[in-house]
Amino acid sequence: MVIGRYITTVHGSGGFETLEIIEKLIVHRVPENLRKVLDGVGLDVLDDGSSMRIGNTHIVISTDNFTVKPLFFPGGDIGHLAVSGVLNDLVMMGARPIAFMDGIIVEEGFPRDDLDRILESMIKLLKENNVALIGGDFKVMPKKSLDGLIISGTGIGLAEKPIIDKIKPGDKIIVTGPIAEHGATILAAQLGMLEQAQGLRSDTRPLVKTVLPILEKYRDHIHAARDPTRGGLSIVLNEWVRGTKYTIVINRSTIPIRDEVRQFLDALGIDPLGVAGEGLAILSVDNEVADEIVEELHRRGEPYATIIGEVIVPEEEYLAGRVIAITEVGGKVVVQPNALNLPRIC
């Protein structure tokens, strides 16, 4: 990809373009020995978070910025999203979140009541998950230089051994819940199509109580875990498989997705596989324990958890590093990592 003279929304879509800009403009500049510290992972892997080791303890850290519009949406708000997003990145690393730091930037003239609601929802979620708020930052930008409010969040977690994504042939791919719920809701809101709540609702929530215990229990059998946020399921699977000799094959009709979400995205001509969820995880796990893990997920409160595919060693060389979907009619297609979808009429 040529980055071009100006940064566009494509570069921030969370797709391969984002990865590329990060690699070309950032990672590339950092000497190898400064890409990680203390026996941990950092820019060398670009996983959900970074880590370092002190004695036998792995400290996992993740930082993210949240710029969602609208700030309040069915199923949550930007504060709720910031906490969920950061905690989920820690969970995906197999870490138990212990602390959070927030950076709030508001536009001058922002209603105090809205700020109040956002902070309340942020802190409520931290309390529910027993995560401490140990610091942060508060800034105000002049009127019109920022649209409303954005949040940066940094989370700290502890893990005996972090999960560093590395799929293995034979792995089963598990999706823990229905896909595309958050992205579809936000898109509908942005297009002014949410005048009545009609079944679209963001799934934003932390996976600390439902998914983390399973990641801890089956730690050695879980080879990769990621939350399909920006860029959705197709980006996660493509990132995992890219550069390997394997193929990920998914059975598209088994992917959990609610009718309302599918129909809405169909109406806009947008592929649900590229749309964000904020309350689910994608796992790549040992074949032997895959069913057991799905059952446990059901028991823990993720009733839609499903095996949607597997990691294979392809016969055809050109399929290595690709994601292939078996379609609803038995056809086969390549799942491309395109993250930016514009609604269409054609």
């Binding site: 990809m1 001509g269 086969k332 390549v334």
Partner: peptide
Amino acid sequence: TPSNPYGPCMVSSEGTCRIWAENLPLKIKT
């Protein structure tokens, strides 16, 4: 490419080039 289209058929998700870019027609066994 779809993210940086040069020609018009790569632009619309109905454009043949765009469609082929996003979904290579495969004839494979898995």
